[in-house]
C-alpha cells in the first residue's frame, strides 16, 4: 500500500504507541498518589503544593502529547500550558488567603 504523506503532517505528530502506553501508566500512578494523599487526610502548604505539581504534570502530558501540542504552534502550546499554570496560581493564592 502506498504511504500517503503531506508536507505539513509528520508521522510522529501523535507519538508512538509505546510512549503513549508508558505515559498512561505514569498518569494512572500519579492519580493513585493523589488518591492516597486524600485517603491519609494530609493537609498543609506542602501537600497542596504536591497535589498541584502532580496535577500540572499530568496536565502537561495531556497537553503536550495527547493533544499533540509538543509539535504544535508555540502560541497554542503557551496558551494551554499557561491556562494550567494560571489556574493553579490562582488556586494557590486563594489557599494562601485562607491560611492568612
Amino acid at each position: 500500500m502506498q504511504k500517503q504523506t503531506t508536507p505539513d503532517h509528520g508521522p510522529q505528530t501523535h507519538g508512538t504507541p509505546r510512549r503513549a502506553t508508558f505515559q498512561w501508566i505514569a498518569l494512572i500512578l500519579a492519580t493513585l498518589a493523589t488518591w492516597l494523599v486524600g485517603q491519609t487526610g494530609a493537609t498543609g502548604t506542602a501537600i497542596v503544593g504536591l497535589l498541584a505539581v502532580i496535577s500540572i504534570w499530568k496536565g502537561s502530558v495531556i497537553i503536550l502529547d495527547f493533544m499533540a501540542l509538543r509539535h504544535g504552534p508555540l502560541l497554542w502550546r503557551a496558551l494551554i500550558l499557561g491556562w494550567m499554570a494560571l489556574v493553579w496560581a490562582v488556586i494557590g493564592i486563594a489557599y494562601w488567603k485562607a491560611l492568612a
Partner: peptide, 22 residues
C-alpha cells in the same frame, strides 16, 4: 480527539481541587 482531551484536562484540576485538597 482534541475536544475529548480538553474534557480530560479539566477533570485533572477538578478532582484534586474538589475531592482532595483541604
Amino acid at each position: 480527539a482534541a475536544y475529548w482531551h480538553m474534557v480530560d484536562l479539566v477533570w485533572l484540576v477538578l478532582f484534586p481541587l474538589v475531592y482532595v485538597i483541604h
